[in-house]
Computed example of a mutant assay.
Amino acid sequence: MRKLYALLIVFATCLFAGCDENGDRGYYEDMDRIYFVKDSIICRLGEMQMGVETYTVQVPLKVLGRPWSENRMFKVNVNRKLTTAPEHIYTSLSSEFVVMKDSVNACIPIELLRDRIDPMVDTVYQIVLDLEVNDTFGFGVQEKLQSKVVFSNYLQEPDWWYALEFVYWGAYRPEKYQKMMEFWGGPISFEEYASRMIQVVLCGKKMYDYFKLHPEFGMEFPEATPWPYE
Protein backbone atom coordinates (compact mmCIF):
# COMPACT_ATOMS: atom_id res chain seq x y z
CA MET A 1 0.00 0.00 0.00
CA ARG A 2 2.84 2.42 0.82
CA LYS A 3 4.37 1.72 -2.61
CA LEU A 4 1.05 2.55 -4.26
CA TYR A 5 0.81 5.87 -2.38
CA ALA A 6 4.40 6.68 -3.35
CA LEU A 7 3.68 6.03 -7.05
CA LEU A 8 0.58 8.22 -6.90
CA ILE A 9 2.57 11.07 -5.37
CA VAL A 10 5.26 10.80 -8.08
CA PHE A 11 2.60 10.75 -10.80
CA ALA A 12 0.84 13.82 -9.35
CA THR A 13 4.13 15.69 -9.07
CA CYS A 14 4.98 14.99 -12.72
CA LEU A 15 1.49 15.99 -13.81
CA PHE A 16 1.62 19.37 -12.07
CA ALA A 17 5.17 19.97 -13.30
CA GLY A 18 4.00 19.38 -16.86
CA CYS A 19 1.16 21.87 -16.42
CA ASP A 20 3.54 24.48 -15.07
CA GLU A 21 5.96 23.95 -17.96
CA ASN A 22 3.32 24.38 -20.64
CA GLY A 23 1.26 27.04 -18.90
CA ASP A 24 -2.46 27.32 -18.31
CA ARG A 25 -3.12 28.29 -21.97
CA GLY A 26 -1.01 25.55 -23.55
CA TYR A 27 2.09 27.66 -24.27
CA TYR A 28 5.57 26.49 -23.37
CA GLU A 29 6.55 28.92 -20.58
CA ASP A 30 10.10 27.81 -19.92
CA MET A 31 12.90 29.34 -22.05
CA ASP A 32 11.73 29.25 -25.67
CA ARG A 33 13.32 26.52 -27.74
CA ILE A 34 13.92 26.12 -31.46
CA TYR A 35 14.28 23.06 -33.68
CA PHE A 36 14.46 21.98 -37.32
CA VAL A 37 11.19 20.83 -38.87
CA LYS A 38 12.95 18.44 -41.29
CA ASP A 39 16.10 16.42 -40.71
CA SER A 40 16.91 16.42 -44.44
CA ILE A 41 15.90 18.12 -47.69
CA ILE A 42 16.71 16.57 -51.07
CA CYS A 43 17.24 18.85 -54.05
CA ARG A 44 17.60 17.45 -57.61
CA LEU A 45 19.12 20.36 -59.48
CA GLY A 46 19.71 18.27 -62.60
CA GLU A 47 15.96 17.97 -63.25
CA MET A 48 15.46 21.74 -63.30
CA GLN A 49 15.35 23.76 -66.50
CA MET A 50 18.74 24.38 -68.05
CA GLY A 51 18.51 28.16 -67.59
CA VAL A 52 18.35 27.92 -63.78
CA GLU A 53 21.79 29.06 -62.58
CA THR A 54 21.04 29.30 -58.84
CA TYR A 55 18.43 27.76 -56.57
CA THR A 56 17.58 28.74 -53.00
CA VAL A 57 16.56 26.00 -50.59
CA GLN A 58 14.47 27.06 -47.58
CA VAL A 59 15.30 25.04 -44.44
CA PRO A 60 12.32 25.38 -42.06
CA LEU A 61 12.50 25.74 -38.26
CA LYS A 62 9.91 26.09 -35.53
CA VAL A 63 9.86 27.66 -32.07
CA LEU A 64 8.56 25.77 -29.04
CA GLY A 65 6.99 28.70 -27.22
CA ARG A 66 4.75 31.69 -27.83
CA PRO A 67 5.18 34.37 -30.51
CA TRP A 68 6.89 37.58 -29.44
CA SER A 69 6.06 41.14 -30.45
CA GLU A 70 9.65 41.65 -31.63
CA ASN A 71 12.13 39.87 -33.86
CA ARG A 72 14.38 37.25 -32.26
CA MET A 73 17.73 35.94 -33.43
CA PHE A 74 18.87 32.32 -33.40
CA LYS A 75 22.25 30.78 -34.20
CA VAL A 76 23.20 28.10 -36.71
CA ASN A 77 26.57 26.73 -37.74
CA VAL A 78 27.65 24.75 -40.79
CA ASN A 79 29.03 21.42 -39.58
CA ARG A 80 32.37 21.35 -41.40
CA LYS A 81 33.11 17.73 -40.55
CA LEU A 82 29.89 16.41 -42.10
CA THR A 83 29.47 18.94 -44.93
CA THR A 84 30.81 17.62 -48.23
CA ALA A 85 29.84 20.52 -50.50
CA PRO A 86 32.81 22.76 -51.35
CA GLU A 87 32.27 26.37 -50.36
CA HIS A 88 32.35 27.69 -53.93
CA ILE A 89 29.10 25.91 -54.92
CA TYR A 90 26.87 27.62 -52.36
CA THR A 91 26.62 31.11 -50.92
CA SER A 92 28.26 31.55 -47.53
CA LEU A 93 25.82 31.48 -44.64
CA SER A 94 25.49 33.90 -41.77
CA SER A 95 25.70 32.41 -38.29
CA GLU A 96 22.55 34.25 -37.14
CA PHE A 97 19.02 34.24 -38.52
CA VAL A 98 15.73 35.74 -37.43
CA VAL A 99 12.35 34.59 -36.20
CA MET A 100 10.05 37.43 -37.21
CA LYS A 101 7.79 39.04 -34.64
CA ASP A 102 4.36 37.45 -34.08
CA SER A 103 5.62 34.17 -35.53
CA VAL A 104 6.94 30.81 -34.34
CA ASN A 105 8.27 29.84 -37.78
CA ALA A 106 11.56 30.62 -39.48
CA CYS A 107 13.61 29.56 -42.50
CA ILE A 108 17.29 29.44 -43.38
CA PRO A 109 17.83 30.24 -47.09
CA ILE A 110 20.71 28.36 -48.71
CA GLU A 111 21.59 29.49 -52.23
CA LEU A 112 23.01 26.65 -54.33
CA LEU A 113 25.19 27.86 -57.22
CA ARG A 114 24.11 25.38 -59.84
CA ASP A 115 26.15 26.95 -62.64
CA ARG A 116 29.33 26.00 -60.73
CA ILE A 117 28.44 22.31 -60.43
CA ASP A 118 29.49 20.02 -63.29
CA PRO A 119 26.29 18.36 -64.59
CA MET A 120 28.27 15.44 -66.06
CA VAL A 121 29.75 14.37 -62.71
CA ASP A 122 27.62 12.00 -60.63
CA THR A 123 28.34 13.51 -57.21
CA VAL A 124 25.93 14.00 -54.32
CA TYR A 125 26.78 16.84 -51.93
CA GLN A 126 25.42 17.75 -48.52
CA ILE A 127 25.41 20.84 -46.31
CA VAL A 128 24.85 20.00 -42.63
CA LEU A 129 23.51 22.62 -40.21
CA ASP A 130 23.72 22.54 -36.41
CA LEU A 131 21.65 24.69 -34.06
CA GLU A 132 23.41 26.61 -31.29
CA VAL A 133 22.11 27.88 -27.96
CA ASN A 134 22.01 31.64 -27.48
CA ASP A 135 20.48 34.02 -24.95
CA THR A 136 17.07 33.82 -26.61
CA PHE A 137 16.64 30.15 -27.47
CA GLY A 138 17.52 26.85 -25.90
CA PHE A 139 17.49 23.53 -27.73
CA GLY A 140 14.20 21.97 -28.73
CA VAL A 141 13.56 18.35 -29.66
CA GLN A 142 16.87 16.49 -29.32
CA GLU A 143 16.45 14.67 -32.64
CA LYS A 144 15.76 17.95 -34.46
CA LEU A 145 18.93 19.89 -33.72
CA GLN A 146 20.59 19.07 -37.03
CA SER A 147 19.38 19.28 -40.60
CA LYS A 148 21.04 18.67 -43.94
CA VAL A 149 20.49 19.72 -47.52
CA VAL A 150 21.39 16.94 -49.96
CA PHE A 151 21.78 17.92 -53.62
CA SER A 152 23.22 16.96 -56.98
CA ASN A 153 23.34 18.59 -60.41
CA TYR A 154 23.75 15.27 -62.21
CA LEU A 155 21.00 14.16 -64.58
CA GLN A 156 21.25 10.50 -65.46
CA GLU A 157 20.95 9.52 -69.10
CA PRO A 158 17.48 8.00 -69.61
CA ASP A 159 17.30 4.33 -70.58
CA TRP A 160 15.74 5.11 -73.96
CA TRP A 161 18.30 7.70 -75.13
CA TYR A 162 20.67 5.22 -76.84
CA ALA A 163 17.95 3.87 -79.17
CA LEU A 164 17.88 6.99 -81.35
CA GLU A 165 21.17 8.55 -80.32
CA PHE A 166 22.82 8.07 -83.71
CA VAL A 167 19.68 9.02 -85.62
CA TYR A 168 18.22 12.13 -84.03
CA TRP A 169 19.47 13.58 -80.74
CA GLY A 170 23.14 12.64 -80.79
CA ALA A 171 25.44 11.97 -77.85
CA TYR A 172 23.83 12.50 -74.46
CA ARG A 173 24.21 15.84 -72.78
CA PRO A 174 22.20 16.86 -69.68
CA GLU A 175 21.26 20.13 -71.37
CA LYS A 176 19.54 18.25 -74.20
CA TYR A 177 17.46 16.16 -71.83
CA GLN A 178 16.67 19.17 -69.63
CA LYS A 179 15.31 21.00 -72.66
CA MET A 180 13.23 17.96 -73.65
CA MET A 181 11.85 17.72 -70.10
CA GLU A 182 10.94 21.39 -70.31
CA PHE A 183 8.89 20.75 -73.46
CA TRP A 184 7.52 17.44 -72.14
CA GLY A 185 6.60 18.76 -68.69
CA GLY A 186 8.89 16.47 -66.66
CA PRO A 187 11.11 13.38 -66.90
CA ILE A 188 10.34 10.97 -69.77
CA SER A 189 10.07 7.38 -68.57
CA PHE A 190 10.93 4.33 -70.66
CA GLU A 191 7.26 3.36 -70.58
CA GLU A 192 6.29 6.74 -72.04
CA TYR A 193 8.97 6.40 -74.69
CA ALA A 194 7.74 2.92 -75.66
CA SER A 195 4.05 3.84 -75.78
CA ARG A 196 4.36 7.41 -77.09
CA MET A 197 7.45 7.29 -79.28
CA ILE A 198 6.12 9.70 -81.89
CA GLN A 199 5.46 12.36 -79.23
CA VAL A 200 8.93 11.82 -77.74
CA VAL A 201 10.57 12.21 -81.15
CA LEU A 202 8.57 15.40 -81.75
CA CYS A 203 9.74 16.65 -78.36
CA GLY A 204 13.30 15.85 -79.44
CA LYS A 205 12.74 17.86 -82.62
CA LYS A 206 11.76 20.89 -80.54
CA MET A 207 14.95 20.44 -78.53
CA TYR A 208 16.98 20.13 -81.76
CA ASP A 209 15.44 23.29 -83.20
CA TYR A 210 16.17 25.21 -80.01
CA PHE A 211 19.87 24.35 -79.99
CA LYS A 212 20.20 25.01 -83.71
CA LEU A 213 18.98 28.53 -82.95
CA HIS A 214 21.45 28.74 -80.03
CA PRO A 215 24.79 27.35 -81.27
CA GLU A 216 26.53 29.03 -78.34
CA PHE A 217 25.63 26.00 -76.22
CA GLY A 218 27.80 23.77 -78.40
CA MET A 219 25.33 20.89 -78.72
CA GLU A 220 26.19 18.39 -81.46
CA PHE A 221 23.79 16.26 -83.51
CA PRO A 222 24.04 13.62 -86.27
CA GLU A 223 24.57 15.29 -89.63
CA ALA A 224 21.96 15.43 -92.37
CA THR A 225 19.39 13.28 -90.60
CA PRO A 226 15.84 14.15 -91.67
CA TRP A 227 13.43 14.34 -88.76
CA PRO A 228 10.10 12.56 -89.25
CA TYR A 229 6.62 13.90 -88.50
CA GLU A 230 7.46 17.41 -89.71
Rank of each mutant, 00 (worst) to 15 (best):
F166I: 00
F166Q: 07
V167W: 12
V167E: 15
V167F: 12
Y168L: 05
Y168C: 05
W169Y: 15
W169D: 05
W169K: 04
W169V: 04
G170E: 10
G170A: 08
G170P: 09
A171V: 13
Y172K: 11
Y172E: 06
Y172S: 07
Y172R: 09
Y172G: 03
R173A: 07
R173N: 12
P174K: 07
P174F: 03
P174G: 01
P174I: 04
E175W: 02
E175Y: 09
E175L: 10
K176P: 03
K176F: 02
K176D: 04
K176I: 05
K176A: 04
K176L: 09
K176G: 04
Y177S: 02
Y177K: 05
Y177W: 02
Q178C: 02
Q178R: 10
K179V: 03
M180N: 06
M180A: 15
M180S: 06
M181Y: 03
M181V: 00
M181F: 04
M181H: 00
M181I: 03
M181N: 11
E182F: 15
E182Q: 15
F183G: 02
F183I: 08
F183K: 10
W184D: 08
W184H: 14
W184I: 11
W184S: 08
G185A: 08
G186D: 12
G186Q: 11
P187M: 06
P187D: 06
P187S: 13
I188P: 07
I188N: 11
I188E: 09
I188Y: 05
S189R: 07
S189V: 05
S189I: 04
S189Y: 09
F190S: 12
F190L: 15
F190A: 12
F190W: 02
E191Q: 15
E191W: 10
E191Y: 11
E191F: 11
E192L: 10
E192H: 13
E192T: 13
E192A: 13
Y193L: 08
Y193D: 01
Y193A: 03
A194R: 03
A194Y: 04
S195M: 05
S195H: 11
S195N: 11
R196Y: 09
R196T: 11
R196K: 14
M197V: 05
M197F: 01
M197K: 14
M197G: 06
M197Q: 15
I198H: 10
I198D: 14
I198P: 00
I198C: 04
Q199P: 00
V200D: 06
V200F: 13
V200W: 10
V200P: 03
